[in-house]
């Protein structure tokens, strides 16, 4: 082994700064993780008054938190719908933008606009639009569209970044060997960008699963999970709120880990092949 270069003093300062930042990111979250195991008589703050899973049990009683199960399944389904649409639409748009085309620049700026337009304006706009054309807003119509205005720009920008780094020589080689455009896409391009597409899917799902400003006026009669939680922040004064927070955060972590696992698996498989 080569002798490692000595770390400069600034390294230690920055490392400490970084550690503080990570503590800042995760510290408060761990506070509610711990507090969700509060005993049955415990309150919203430390100290722990015994340790129990009382509040997790409480989650499944309707009178305590409203209908948690139903709003969770709505959010889950909506997240999956948004995920699939985001991947498909972003992939197609990414392919489109590999060539220059008339209207490409305005469309690009519209995509950027989708990212910067304040979420509440999107929410209000879609809400009023549905009201005016006489459609009832619902989470799977207006809510779905509102979420796409948030996930699509991320998807499209990621696909941009992917295709900017993608050498066309692979496709040229496939074409030279007699592959049809579809074969080139299916057997050359798609496998190479698959990990990025899974990443886009993760973004699509997670951003939708946690979104609530855009759902505010577009969810219709039935709440999604974040709306339910948002409502709870004002009227729930027991640790059941923390239990719910812990459960959905653990769910998000599980989704992230699963996705990373799949990406790693694909990479390993490819390295072996």
């Amino acid at each position: 082994m080569q002798q490692r270069e000595k770390r400069p003093f600034s390294f230690y300062i920055l490392a400490a700064f970084f550690a503080l930042f990570v503590l800042f990111l995760y510290g408060p979250m761990s506070a509610i993780f711990i507090l969700s195991f509060q005993g049955p008589n415990g309150g919203l703050t430390f100290p722990l008054n015994g340790v129990s899973v009382h509040w997790f049990g409480n989650l499944f009683e309707k009178q305590a938190v409203g209908d948690f199960g139903a709003s969770f399944s709505r959010s889950l389904l909506l997240g999956l719908m948004v995920m699939v649409s985001t991947v498909l639409v972003a992939l197609l748009a990414g392919l489109a933008f590999r060539r220059r085309f008339l209207g490409g620049t305005p469309l690009f700026y519209l995509t950027i606009a989708s990212l910067v337009v304040p979420s509440i304006i999107v929410s209000l706009g879609i809400g009023v639009l549905f009201q005016q054309i006489g459609f009832r807003p619902a989470w799977w119509t207006s809510g779905f569209g509102a979420h796409l205005t948030w996930t699509l720009p991320f998807g499209v920008l990621i696909m941009f970044a992917v295709f900017n780094r993608f050498s066309p020589s692979y496709e040229e080689a496939a074409r030279d060997l007699g592959a049809s455009p579809w074969q080139t896409f299916r057997h050359v391009l798609l496998p190479m960008i698959a990990p990025s597409l899974i990443g886009v899917g993760l973004f699509g799902f997670s951003l939708s699963y946690d979104e609530f400003a855009r759902t505010l006026m577009t969810a219709g009669t039935f709440n999604t999970l974040p709306l339910e939680i948002y409502g709870m922040t004002t009227n729930v004064t027991t640790p059941v709120l923390y239990a719910l927070g812990t459960v959905t955060t653990l769910f998000s972590f599980a989704v992230i880990l699963l996705t990373l696992g799949i990406i790693l698996l694909i990479r390993r498989k490819r390295a072996r092949a």
């Binding site: 197609l92 489109a96 469309l107």
Partner: peptide
């Protein structure tokens, strides 16, 4: 092909972003 591929993005952003604004 570029036009066809950009249609879904166009339609979604047109209907759920541009039109509402």
């Amino acid at each position: 092909a570029s036009y066809l591929q950009s249609i879904p993005l166009c339609l979604i952003l047109g209907f759920f972003l541009l039109l509402p604004i």
